[in-house]
């Protein structure tokens, strides 16, 4: 699975960090760091983070798209 966060939408509400702290981290209350390719077994948590986002900035895409992107 591949995660894409629309950082123009993200306003730092940090709800994803509570839902999936291993994959989303807010540094300095503003800058979001996230794991773009978490393992499939983490799907439930990632979906929880996606659902909790107040501005709906997180999308989950299939992994094969990520592979296509690689050089």
């Amino acid at each position: 699975m591949r995660i894409v966060v629309d950082l123009n939408r993200c306003q730092g509400y940090a709800q994803c960090c509570y839902a999936a702290p291993e994959h989303f981290e807010l540094r300095g209350h503003e800058i979001l760091f996230y794991d773009p390719a978490p393992p499939e077994r983490e799907r439930a948590r990632i979906e929880r983070a996606q659902q909790a986002c107040p501005v709906r900035a997180i999308s989950i895409e299939p992994a094969d798209l990520a592979e296509q992107d690689e050089p």
Partner: peptide, 9 residues
Amino acid sequence: PERAPRLIE
């Protein structure tokens, strides 16, 4: 039960 997060939203 995995439906719970979207249900609560």
